[in-house]
Design a protein around this nucleic acid. Structure first.
Lengths: 332, 332
DNA sequence: TTGAAAGCGCTAACAG
DNA sequence: CTGTTAGCGCTTTCAA
């Protein structure tokens, strides 16, 4: 783990009057040398402040134990805004570190990525986009990876995700009456968890004689959100599902501005949960994701892949639903 | 940036029927070879999916461009709880990445650290403790580092920090009348920003005929916090300063439980700011730190050090004060 | 018991 | 114009 130049194994060898082999053995405890030689070498090494070069080690052993973590496009505030991501980074890192691997924070962005010269042993990619170039990049560079969420256009080998489809299905069953038209509001590039949530919603709709209609918000600007809210509510939807917690909060405040109340006028549901949903002026029902478990499983998966196991199987983590005031239970 | 074995420069050379030098030159655009040779080599390299080994490169060039980020002891929830840290990680990473360096998330913990074999070119250590073993570790391993905050027991070469001393001085001047006894509540191991804040407080006390008394909370348990609040308030303090935002919130709720109101019964101030302070039942006055700027400056500093500049100078970032209801302005 | 040499993959002198 | 060679720093056969 050294970094500055100087003091190679040869320096130590010279100082101790032995060969480099002996130094290597003495320091690693490998060959059986006389205690005396070993001590002499060790003390000499200590005196010179010798540290084996991690890079040289890595060259021999083909790998330094570095695992990339691609969270989101560079330039965006990644960890600060989205607790989900911060939790993933934290827990994935802890798991990796506890196994002697080091997490490298990488941009979810090929241009920057190709700037770097990091010898990655593997990577974890969070929320890949459709046809994500980052995944292509890793494939071309023979870096094995696992995704959290998946690239819908890719025959994705290894991924894990929260089971948002089933989660939303159950949440709708619990909180939205049959024959209710539901507006599903999306924003930003399409990610797999949104598609999953939509699938869950559609499954619910089929089973309860309802319909789902998608609205896409261009941005989270007040104007765009307001537009979505107006057009959705002008058409008699009984419930609104927001793709994620921040969007749900935006929708809530747009509704409040217009004098529309949840759940009285319309039920409001968020696909992703966050503490802010709990403390909103009207607490918002949501599915509780499990980023910590997801991250740990993913990290363990990539560790296994690095250690030679074949690709891991695709896994869906079952989720809890959290019922709050914005869409209370209709059961019992 | 490759990772899996195979396809070395020699394979390409063989396939193209040239020497490794020619391959190296052809691919790097160095030597002036005939276009035709270059193209042939390139196409052959492409066909074989050849990627230069980042490790081998690193061995030659003595460095891979890895910068460690030590935030806090492993095992603790690092980024999720403390927005300050998350902001630092985000912005330091962005700056490093934009310069072709890669941030490695490291535990602030020597045992785990020595497990790893990461060839670090430099490191950023956030909030070092007194006599921090992590800094010793880096010194022994010849890894250059900058700290955010400083190790009080160490003749620290390079550090940056928020100017909490001056910040708290001004905040007290604005919000606490002269001749007020102030309780300063600390928690956890002593960090330099707390010492700085204390210095600011003492300076204020000298100038306004007041006194500062320190209370140390063992933990943020309800009981411990309650104990501190009781003993501080039993002694007629007119203001309480909390070491950080989470502690301030704990104090506030302990006060509320006891029917003590801020600012009526006692003024409450936090050294560090966070959005939660704004939305607390009684919004709490604080100093606004600037983690984003701090992180960027620090990253630029370590980049310069890696590129050969001498240690950077110690820097204090001036801060804004944020006056809220828990300790309103006494001026004007 | 110890050492010489090969090799990990690459680039830069230096020859040819 | 292109190839040979010498490292970068280390470990591991294989000889001595």
């Amino acid at each position: 783990m050294s970094t500055k130049r100087k003091t190679t194994i040869r320096d130590v060898a010279a100082a101790a009057g032995v060969s480099v082999t002996t130094v290597s053995d003495a320091l690693s405890g490998k060959g059986r040398l006389p205690e005396e030689t070993r001590r002499r070498v060790q003390s000499e090494a200590e005196k010179l402040g010798y540290r084996p070069s991690a890079i040289a080690l890595g060259l021999r052993e083909r790998g330094l134990g570095l695992v990339g973590l691609c969270i989101t496009p560079a330039g965006e505030a990644i960890l600060t805004d989205v607790g989900y991501w911060a939790t993933i980074v934290t827990h994935a890192s802890q798991t990796l570190l506890s196994e002697g691997l080091a997490p490298v924070l990488l941009p979810h962005n090929v241009d920057l990525l190709s700037t770097l010269k990091v010898p990655l042993d593997g990577a974890i990619v969070v929320d890949p986009l459709e046809g994500d170039p980052v995944l292509t990049f890793f494939e071309r560079n023979r870096v094995r990876y696992i995704t959290i969420g998946r690239d819908l256009t890719r025959d994705n080998r290894s991924w894990l995700d929260d089971d948002n489809a089933n989660g939303l299905l159950r949440l709708l069953q619990r909180t939205v009456p049959a024959r209710t038209n539901v507006a599903f509001v999306t924003i930003g590039p399409l990610k797999s968890y949104v598609v999953d949530a939509l699938n869950g919603a559609n499954q619910w709709a089929r089973g309860s004689d309802s319909s789902i209609r998608i609205f896409h918000a261009e941005s989270s600007d007040r104007a765009d959100i307001g537009h979505v809210v107006s057009s959705a509510l002008g058409q008699g939807f009984g419930a609104i599902v927001a793709q994620h917690d921040r969007l749900a909060l935006h929708l809530l405040s747009a509704m409040t501005e217009r004098g529309i109340e949840a759940p009285k006028d319309v039920r409001l549901i968020s696909v992703t949960d966050s503490p802010d949903l709990e403390s909103a002026s009207t607490p918002i029902s949501a599915i509780r994701q499990r980023p910590a478990q997801l991250a740990e499983l993913t990290a363990r998966g990539i560790i296994e892949m690095i250690r030679g196991k074949p690709d891991i199987e695709k896994t869906l983590l079952p989720l809890e639903i959290v019922i709050r005031k914005s869409a209370p239970s209709i059961v019992g």
